[in-house]
């Protein structure tokens, strides 16, 4: 158990995607759980390596789409059949073929909105402050460097032992992250 509070975690730097994947797998096997990896582009297998498996996003989008479709149809039904029935072109009030284009659009609208907002919410974005940005080298995480972070709140975390462990994984450098 870590007693230090002036430390958020240790950040190890790598120069290739497969190295950070390997390092993450080793760290996970070693028993570390509170960790994250940062890369300039999506790296296959990295999320799995740090113990992330499924996202609930598809379900959120499906529900968003169903809600949008139901809302669209309900709106049209209420407007055209109940509240303001008007004969147009000899068509019945409940002209379902003519409703379909609008219902389709509202379905897509709400599904797309839930995809974006759901992704941002699950990711906790926008986030105005995060400790990793205190490491100057971290600016390269959006260019060509790959980072593995082990957080200090991990039960297995030990300032020295974890540092040695990360260095042994072939990191180009290990930095302390201030909280």
């Amino acid at each position: 158990m870590s007693e230090r509070t002036d430390l958020y975690g240790l950040l190890a730097e790598f120069d290739a995607p497969e190295k950070v994947v390997a390092a993450a797998q080793r760290a996970y096997a070693e028993g570390y759980r509170q960790m994250d990896a940062y890369t300039p582009f999506p790296v296959e297998g990295l999320a799995e390596a740090i113990g992330f498996h499924r996202t609930r996003l598809p379900m959120i989008v499906l529900l968003g789409g169903l809600f949008g479709g139901a809302l669209g149809y309900a709106l049209l039904y209420y407007a055209e059949v109940i509240d303001y029935p008007l004969i147009v072109g000899g068509k019945p009030f409940h002209s379902w073929p003519a409703f379909i284009p609008i219902v389709f659009e509202t379905t897509i609208f709400f599904a797309a909105l839930s995809a974006v907002l759901g992704m941002l919410a699950l990711n906790g974005l926008p986030m105005p402050y995060h400790p990793v940005f205190n490491v100057p080298r971290f600016a390269l995480a959006s260019r060509d460097r790959f980072f593995l972070l082990i957080e200090a709140r991990d039960p297995k975390f030990d300032r020295e032992a974890t540092r040695r462990f990360l260095e042994a994984l072939g990191a180009d450098g290990v930095w302390e992250v201030e909280p």
């Binding site: 890369t39 999506p42 990295l46 999320a47 992330f52 759901g118 990711n123 986030m127």
Partner: peptide, 21 residues
């Protein structure tokens, strides 16, 4: 950029959201 930091978890959800969109 809303504090984007390229976290692996974020990328996983990001790619899923992009694919769904």
């Amino acid at each position: 950029a809303m504090g984007w930091r390229g976290s692996a978890r974020h990328w996983a959800r990001y790619e899923m959201a992009y694919l769904l969109l």
